[in-house]
Design a protein around this nucleic acid. Sequence first.
DNA 1: TTGAAAGCGCTAACAC
DNA 2: GTGTTAGCGCTTTCAA
Lengths: 333, 333
Amino acid sequence: MLARPTMKDVAQCAGVSAMTVSRVVSGDPGVLPETAAKVQRAIRKLGYQRDDLARQLRRKGQLTQTVALLVDNVADPFTASLASAVEEVARRHDSVVLIGSSHDDLRREREVISAFIARRVDGLILIPVKGSHGFLRNAMTTGTRVVCADRSAFGLDVDSVVIDNRGAAEEAIAHLTARGHRRIAYLGDRLDIWTIEERYEGYRAALDAAGIPVDQDIVRHGLRLPQDASDAAASVLAAPQPPTAVLASNGIVGLGARAALPAHIALVSFDDFLLAPQLNPPVTVIAQDPAAMGNTAAHLLFSRIYGDDSPTRTVVLPTRLIPRGSGELPAPT
Amino acid sequence: MLARPTMKDVAQCAGVSAMTVSRVVSGDPGVLPETAAKVQRAIRKLGYQRDDLARQLRRKGQLTQTVALLVDNVADPFTASLASAVEEVARRHDSVVLIGSSHDDLRREREVISAFIARRVDGLILIPVKGSHGFLRNAMTTGTRVVCADRSAFGLDVDSVVIDNRGAAEEAIAHLTARGHRRIAYLGDRLDIWTIEERYEGYRAALDAAGIPVDQDIVRHGLRLPQDASDAAASVLAAPQPPTAVLASNGIVGLGARAALPAHIALVSFDDFLLAPQLNPPVTVIAQDPAAMGNTAAHLLFSRIYGDDSPTRTVVLPTRLIPRGSGELPAPT
DNA sequence: TTGAAAGCGCTAACAC
DNA sequence: GTGTTAGCGCTTTCAA
């Protein structure tokens, strides 16, 4: 295993100074074409590639052209789309993306972010876990830009890109009550996730508004896997007064619930998924656009990185209730 | 915006030398507890965090504890699962993960990898695009480890983790011919993707073995989106002698085909997807395990990073044909 | 146990 | 147009 060649090596090989090599590599125009050619030849011969770590060190105050993305779970399709959009924008800004998962664990989130900060990332897009993000203060003070996506972080004054979770849930419930439903179950993910909490609050508020009491017999929280949701669906159906409709807090839950629900029970689920139209009945969803979210967050981040110091903004992206059949089933009379 | 505090700042604040701070930060035991406490206090007071970029520079030959993952498309669920597994293993080795998409474009692949190499990644996991990867030679010579996942790279002597694509396709065709099918369409993604080429070869070989001629009237390539696949499905059904069964080269194609195929046409698709069992008929698939693939690739990579110099290996992970109904429909007599 | 000096690979600033 | 010098923030090495 050879040592990585340095500028000095190239300089020696080309018979010039290291500075000239630096100029050539950086595309500085003030070099004679013949000199540049000599250097290029040496570079090719030695297989030289500039060490950006060393470069960054000297060019203080400059950008490392690296941004970080911390999501709850990289494997989730929603997150994957968001990440893809972030990567696309980053590439257009000649930056690379460090990615990590918090798995909704604050300690892990802090560890991973710390590793990112130590590598001097220019900015961080974060789907924040519930809890205090005070540990980000230092990094932000010294120039690391932060943008929250999907969830907002309590007590952290940064740009955010979210949807109106509460409003969307209210819309879903109104959609169901308009079809005569008065026993509407709620099946949800962990309540300590900001989006989920908001959606549940919307569920409660909408029932209230319709004069329907919230009945904990047909409410389930903490569902993480499709199987959890299937079990929960079966269990609310076994309640003394079973529901005629179900609201699912997210795609995973909707999917699991769908597998366990009889076809005549109405269902509205957050998050669109590819096969939703092909199920029987096709699933009515509240669709959001993860790519738009990633795209928006990344654009916000880079404008901050490039010096935008205006007051922090919260961008609320629209959602769309897509009626496909499962949400339009009427209540039995 | 303040400047990031340095070791010197901490040293001054604590009344010690920079070297002592370095020892404390690195957990060197040879420091008096009281001295260490003083330093810790200063660190907290200033919000100091070590600059790993500078650290790496001095500790030559040491690892940057950063690995890179280059996939075809981050947004793809298969890829997302793989990435998640890689990240998990990396974290256990105290490393972070740079991620990028090639979008099956060689030029872009090279650009992104180049950006990774410039940041001195310890290793790279790659889903290689078709084409020459000679540009990786230099990096490999100077110590960057490379592992291929999902696809093997022609002429690149590195560890690989793949499945037996050809064999799995043959198994699928045998599964269909055993049920009397002799008109089996092939709907596939781009043929210049190694896995797809192998699968198509398996399709042809299995038909040959069964004495069935390959008919280009019911073969389609280059399908990238579900809609492409739906259109292709409709078009092969309109052939003079329409197929009674379909093999789909991957999940996206299978999904699109499913939407356009009448329920009586048999279907076997590569790649399992969450809702496959809930479709009507439920979809028979050739399932692979992307998490196992990412996990295996990451373990191979880190063992190389830690100095394993044994001959390169190719790990072939098992696939599983899961009969769910759509692949067991008999041919009409 | 602690510190001083040197230098990792690169570039800013200045000379020539 | 090109070279020299110095130094980014850290750690290695050696001395005290």
